[in-house]
Amino acid sequence: MSRNLWTLMVAAGLLCMAAPAIAADTAAMLKEKRCNACHDADKALIGPPWKAIALRYQADKQQAIDALARKIVSGGGGAWGVVPMVPNEHVSAAEARELAAWILEQAAR
């Protein structure tokens, strides 16, 4: 086994280990911050599904993280119809960026 392949396997293993950990943390945060009241992975509830949001903003993820994080904290509308998102003051700016990054990962799921 070449060293590169070993490195790749270790890296892949770490990624595999890391991914569920992030998902578990994020899932807990989604519940704790009551995001589930309006959003689901695939279904439209009060707001659009996370997968639909992710698919819309794949082109420029960095800019999307900024915009989504801002919307999570301050609320606002315009992208998904006439109903604005309610501000969530229980989410910090750092948490909002973490959630936004996670949402953008949902396109491939």
Partner: peptide, 12 residues
Amino acid sequence: RNYARLIDETPH
């Protein structure tokens, strides 16, 4: 009232 403002600002 903040939500009323957001409704007003959202295009419709």
